[in-house]
Structure formats: C-alpha cells, structure tokens
Computed example of a mutant assay.
Amino acid sequence: MQITRRMLLGGLGAGVLVAGPTRLLARQTLSLGDIEVTTVSDGHLVLPGQFLFPDLPEDELDSILSQHGVSRDAVQPPCNVTLMRARGRTVLFDAGSGDGFMPSAGRLRDALGAIGIMPEDVTDVVLTHGHPDHLWGVLDDFDDPMFANASYLMGQREFDYWSDPDTVDSIGPERAAFAVGAARRLEAIAEHCTFFGDAEELLPGVMAHATFGHTPGHMGFEIRQGSEAVLVAGDAIGNHHVAFARPDWRSGADQDRDMGAATRLRLLDMLAQDQTMLIGFHLPDGGIGRVERSGDAYRFVPAL
C-alpha cells in the first residue's frame, strides 16, 4: 500500500492536529565531549495505518501494536530534528516540513526559538533524505531560504534522485507530489549545497553512513567525539514498535522495501552490539536512546 496525498489529508481530523506546549517543544540533550546534541520537535505526522503496515500478518501485527498502545488505523509519529552545537557551528540534521505538508508539523522555528536559536544562527543543514517532513522546511512561507546563512549538505545520490526530472514519472502517482516539492526546494538551495558519499567526513566529527532503502540515497550520520558516538538515523529506523520487533518486515514507508528491511536489520544489530546511542526522527521521547536485544528482536530504550 502506497501513501497518497488524499490519504494524508483524509487523516487530518481537527482532533489530532493540536500539539500542546509540551509536545511542541519536547527535546532531549546529550553531550559528547564538547559537542552538544539536542533534539527539538517539528510537531508530528498523522498517517493511515495501512501506509505503514501493508500486507503484514494481522495477528502478530495487532499484538505488537497493542503492546505499545499504537492504533492500527491512524499513527501519529513525532518528528525529531537534531541540533548539534560545537566549535562555533550550529548544525541542523534535517529541516522539518515547513508549512506545506501537514498542519500538525512545521513547528521547528518555534521549537528552536524556545531554546534561543534563530534561523539566521544556523550555520549548516545536513539532510538525511528528500521526503517532505525532512526537506520542505528549507524554505519559509515566502519561498525564501529559512536558514539564510546556512550551507547545505546532502548525499550526492539522494540529491541527484530528487533533482532528476524523470523522478516524478517513475516514483509513482502516490508520491509524485513529494518529487515535485523536493525538486523545487533543492533547486532553490542548490548553489549553497555541498555533496558527499558514504563514509565521508562532511563536518568535523560527523561521518556519513549509507542507509539506502527508505529512499534511494538515504544517509545516516555518526557524530563522534573520542570513544563516544551517536547515530542520527533519519528514517532508516522509522518507528519504535514494528521496526524493532520485526525489522525484517517490509515497511510501506520505504520506497525500496527489501533494501529498507536489510538496512534496518544491519543498523539494529550494529547499534545493539556496539551500544552506540541512536537518534530516530520518528522515535518517541525526543528520539534519543539505545537499542537492546529482546530475544530474537530488539527494543528501543529512551534516554530519559
């Protein structure tokens, strides 16, 4: 089952659009030596369950979701944008969705302002991928760059995919609006973009990791200071329930479902074994935590 714009808009009932002050400004912080990493909220999405859970064993799916208090009909994942402050840089990992995607999201500017960060303070915006809730916030209400003084960094493969005029025809009608929106925003910031590949250090202490599958060029980022590290995983691990309990299941959120599952399994195994901290864009409680093995599966342990 592919998500459609009609499905998205149909799920946006007034009763689920209100994000109270706690949810709006929810954040968590960790320190890696002189590097401070904070997650701030861009709000949340409202997604139909059939988008995330297509063609899955119903009984096992219901059991997993009930353990986490998640509705099978409508899912409201949080959107955690990562902020890194170190050595004179103020770096955002992803830019949120702006005001053009869902009324329940697009709260990043307010969340940053609550901790004293103005858009002009941001020096770098590092993009995991080109989906609306990660990219569309690079432009403001007037289609000007939201972060006027920032440079932008994106994986070359991901930039090329969304900038290719053929993508809108090949991605499928359900995601065609994603392609149009991404191309327009990337064109607006292209002259300020720097591109990189897998295993490149794109900023001091920040290493790129190819995490393809959710999108063709999706990237994660390891922030490291000495022996301490955290992985900013974007949407490579997309939720705290099914993705951990059955990472081998094919997620409807992934554009390449088989590759997405393989990437998810690899990351969870690595994170559990190395006990590296994880930041997930759609994970609960600010998105920062650890991965633990739970029998043949995994579980997310928030850093609260």
Score class of each variant (00 low, 15 high):
residue 8 L to C: 14
residue 85 R to K: 05
residue 156 Q to N: 01
residue 100 G to H: 04
residue 137 G to M: 03
residue 141 D to S: 03
residue 27 R to E: 10
residue 111 A to M: 07
residue 100 G to E: 13
residue 126 V to Y: 11
residue 40 V to P: 06
residue 23 R to D: 09
residue 71 S to T: 13
residue 3 I to G: 14
residue 177 A to Q: 12
residue 282 H to Q: 10
residue 213 G to K: 01
residue 88 G to R: 11
residue 97 S to V: 01
residue 259 M to P: 08
residue 129 H to P: 11
residue 211 T to N: 06
residue 222 E to D: 04
residue 39 T to G: 03
residue 173 P to Y: 00
residue 234 G to C: 03
residue 60 E to L: 06
residue 33 G to N: 07
residue 34 D to Q: 12
residue 96 G to C: 09
residue 11 G to L: 08
residue 26 A to S: 14
residue 83 L to D: 10
residue 66 S to G: 13
residue 62 D to P: 07
residue 92 L to C: 04
residue 205 G to R: 07
residue 209 H to T: 01
residue 27 R to A: 02
residue 179 A to I: 04
residue 45 L to E: 04
residue 32 L to A: 15
residue 80 N to S: 08
residue 133 D to H: 02
residue 229 A to V: 02
residue 218 H to G: 03
residue 14 A to K: 10
residue 17 L to C: 09
residue 243 A to Q: 00
residue 65 L to A: 02
residue 287 G to A: 05
residue 284 P to N: 10
residue 86 A to C: 02
residue 22 T to P: 06
residue 238 G to W: 01
residue 193 C to R: 15
residue 95 A to W: 09
residue 113 G to C: 10
residue 237 I to H: 00
residue 131 H to G: 00
residue 172 G to F: 05
residue 88 G to T: 13
residue 213 G to W: 04
residue 58 E to G: 04
residue 182 A to D: 08
residue 286 G to L: 11
residue 54 P to F: 12
residue 298 Y to S: 03
residue 147 F to V: 03
residue 286 G to A: 12
residue 142 F to E: 09
residue 302 P to W: 11
residue 275 Q to T: 12
residue 236 A to N: 07
residue 3 I to V: 08
residue 8 L to W: 02
residue 52 L to C: 00
residue 185 R to C: 12
residue 48 P to T: 11
residue 84 M to P: 05
residue 180 V to T: 11
residue 204 P to M: 03
residue 253 A to G: 05
residue 261 A to P: 02
residue 271 L to K: 03
residue 182 A to H: 08
residue 211 T to M: 13
residue 58 E to H: 11
residue 128 T to R: 13
residue 153 L to C: 15
residue 31 S to T: 15
residue 243 A to D: 11
residue 135 L to G: 04
residue 188 A to S: 15
residue 96 G to D: 00
residue 193 C to P: 08
residue 178 F to R: 02
residue 225 Q to D: 14
residue 61 L to Q: 08
residue 35 I to E: 03
residue 86 A to P: 02
residue 211 T to H: 02
residue 163 S to M: 12
residue 66 S to R: 15
residue 124 D to C: 06
residue 298 Y to A: 03
residue 38 T to Y: 02
residue 122 V to H: 02
residue 270 M to Y: 12
residue 172 G to Y: 00
residue 103 P to D: 04
residue 172 G to I: 05
residue 129 H to G: 05
residue 16 V to Q: 09
residue 187 E to A: 13
residue 13 G to Y: 10
residue 138 V to L: 07
residue 145 P to R: 10
residue 259 M to W: 01
residue 266 R to N: 05
residue 240 H to M: 06
residue 198 D to E: 10
residue 252 G to M: 10
residue 72 R to Q: 07
residue 67 Q to W: 14
residue 38 T to P: 04
residue 296 D to T: 12
residue 91 V to G: 09
residue 193 C to K: 15
residue 99 D to C: 12
residue 215 T to Q: 09
residue 219 M to G: 00
residue 185 R to F: 14
residue 100 G to S: 15
residue 287 G to K: 14
residue 192 H to C: 00
residue 18 V to H: 11
residue 298 Y to I: 01
residue 87 R to Q: 08
residue 53 F to P: 00
residue 25 L to F: 11
residue 18 V to C: 09
residue 74 A to Q: 11
residue 181 G to F: 07
